[in-house]
Nucleic acid binder design. Structure first.
Lengths: 143, 143
DNA sequence: CCACTGTTTCCCACATTTCCCCACGCGGCC
DNA sequence: GGCCGCGTGGGGAAATGTGGGAAACAGTGG
């Protein structure tokens, strides 16, 4: 299984391309990713092998709970299959760029089995205020 | 198996033709689709291989539950086998165009094993209000 | 049975976008 | 110091979405 760690501040060039860190490129077996917006404050990038199970769960959710149809649609509508070019860059569609508030620079963050793409300033804000109970709970993991 | 992702805003020209995104054209092995209205707010486009199982289930439903006969009939009546032209466009019959409230523009949305065709504004409305329980359920998928 | 009309299908054409490839500069490592 | 890897930039070629014209077709009415 792939494990992505670290954060990298990369440029988002005029054409909307973003270089993936070389580490992340090597970290995934295949060269195919799925870029999708599952949170409203950042984009998420799944390597293909991690996306497969997610897709299956989406389908099950949809079958079990018809209410979920529109929700699943909103996810798949935002999703995009992306393949890095020979320089290891992916193209981020304008639609997603706007949705995540990206312009000029982006923070590429390793998140274990997936990668998150943030606007650097927004990342600062959102990770600044940790809920206290959560922090306490989390501390036990490292004990 | 084919997996359709992404949303594309395409023109619906004077003749009622709609270009399928090139990604979707490649995504399906065969060049044959079934266009049908199974939801009241959008049209659905199945690649031929995904339609097969659906057809079987319709038959079973009909056998088990005679009440369903009229329902199944209304589905098959609206359905249409379509083959994209050499430019990758399909013709959407007027009847279906009206039923889905399409005029001028259409949003072609990937929905995993099938494709949905929406009026852009309607899509905005319907996907905007996520049920809270559903959203919560769904968030676990991405953890 | 034939002529007519409206619809569908095939083909050609164009503008824009996207993709692919080459090139540069910086930095670390041998 | 030279080499290699990496992030960044850009130019040219191919692909894509869109429009329209003419041929083929089907259905209708005379």
């Amino acid at each position: 299984m792939s494990s992505f760690l670290g954060s990298y501040r990369h440029q988002l060039d005029g054409k909307g391309r973003l270089s993936l860190p070389a580490d992340f490129r090597r970290g995934s077996d295949a060269d195919v990713f799925v870029l999708v917006q599952v949170q409203d404050d950042a984009l998420t990038l799944f390597p293909e092998d991690a996306w497969g199970p997610v897709q299956e769960e989406l389908r099950e959710l949809q079958q079990r709970n018809p209410e979920a149809r529109h929700y699943v649609l909103s996810i798949t509508a935002s999703a995009r299959r992306v393949v890095p070019d020979s320089q290891g860059r992916i193209l981020i569609p304008e639609q997603l760029r706007d949705a995540a508030g990206l312009d000029g620079e982006a923070l590429v963050v390793g998140a274990l089995n997936k990668i998150e793409i943030w606007d650097p300033e927004r990342f600062q804000q959102r990770t600044g205020d940790r809920g206290e109970e959560v922090a306490e709970l989390a501390q036990r993991i490292f004990a």
